[in-house]
Design a protein around this nucleic acid. Structure first.
Lengths: 221, 221
DNA sequence: ACAAAAGTGTTGTGGTTACACCCATGA
DNA sequence: TCATGGGTGTAACCACAACACTTTTGT
């Protein structure tokens, strides 16, 4: 931002700075549960292994664009399938890249689970059994889940992205259990949904199973 | 993290990346209230104006080291006076630097108010009346205050850094009012302090004013 | 008719707020 | 002894958890 002893700075001479990676933690909620998207790495290091999608930040590129590029080029996930994205922090653990010092600006992205191609190069791992990942990606996943826990039902944008536009009461119970790890009483959760401004309940659209038809909730606007 | 069309990457050829600034929001709590530290800029752009201390991240430099360097070289605040530091996020508003696209990794630092030199190049502005700052620094200050609000009395490290090692009950009331903007009942706050593991109350050390001597709280460990 | 699944009602509890009152201190 | 300022007690309230009970649906 200002010339200093450490950099040559100022546009003309290229400053000598660490690599900046933009990593994304793709999250998906579906009937199969809460899952993390990992993609097979094409290049070294760790070529062939699965890891979170990430790219090096380009000159003039915004964080948002870089995250979208990571999802598209590394995981084949287009922007239209990203329901919401939020930053989880900047990480600079010394061992995060074996090649050289690098800093990661990481974010979580909630992905629309509809019409998943399920290629050989993108796997959705259940959040409870994510295999060990290279770099510091285990840490990024843990931090993402921690933040989801605090934001679910408190941050509308995140919650709406996870549920999708419509969801039933038992869906909400399952989602809460998957995110927090704790069972919630359906009756109490239902009450808080009814109290939630921004949610409206449709009566009961179609039959789904044996018992009584659940209420279906829709986000207003 | 991996070669891509946008970068030349990989150690030998320098990648073309945006400037990475590390900005710090110095916060101080004292008898005068809650204040933000702003330093006079020595170089362009905005030379002569007051702004938050910030430096360009150096190669091989950790975020922690860069933040410490910003505080030391731009605001004359040594590491021993930094009680606590925490990240508030990465910012990339397009207008944040008039020269070129730059990204800021920002953190808040709680500074020991003891023995403040109060030079001509460092000013402590009351948090309620911070003047408009260059770059996106207004945003960084707002985000810092927002985070302090949620962390006070919930995040021990932050709270301890603000209060210092010892503080009286009325100190706690004033601190809470300064951070949240809301008045709290001393009686209730006192109760929650008593319930707080990690705080112990000393009886009543010395006289300070007219009324009854307040309890003084000390952080254990 | 029965079992399954979801909605409804009720009770208890912990934490928070508000406020009246008591106690210590200095002038 | 009085004003000042902090501590103590207590009642009202609210959010939430737990659980019993009722209603709807498919077989």
């Amino acid at each position: 931002m200002t010339p200093s002893g450490v950099t040559s700075a100022d546009g003309s001479g290229l400053p000598s700075q660490p690599l900046i990676a933009v990593d994304v933690v793709p999250m998906r909620w579906s009937a199969e549960g809460l899952a993390v998207g990992v993609a097979r790495r094409e290049f070294e290091p760790f070529a062939g292994r699965f890891a979170l999608p990430g790219v090096l930040l380009g000159a003039g590129e915004s964080l948002d664009d870089a995250a979208a590029r990571a999802l598209r080029t590394k995981a084949g996930i287009g922007r239209e399938r990203v329901r919401h994205r939020f930053q989880i922090g900047a990480f600079d653990g010394p061992d995060r890249d074996p090649r050289r010092h690098a800093i990661s600006i990481a974010s979580a992205a909630v992905i629309d689970p509809a019409a998943e191609p399920a290629t050989d190069d993108l796997r959705w791992e259940p959040v409870t059994e994510v295999p060990s990942l290279p770099f510091d990606h285990d840490l990024l996943v843990a931090e993402t889940v921690r933040q989801l826990r605090t934001r679910l039902w408190h941050d509308d944008a995140v919650t709406r992205a996870l549920t999708g536009p419509r969801f039933s009461t038992p869906d909400a119970v399952r989602l809460t259990a998957a995110v927090t790890g704790e069972e919630v009483h359906q009756s109490n959760l239902r009450r808080s949904l009814a109290a939630h401004a921004g949610l409206s309940s449709a009566p009961a659209p179609e039959s789904a199973g044996r018992g009584r038809r659940p209420l279906v909730w829709a986000w207003s606007d």
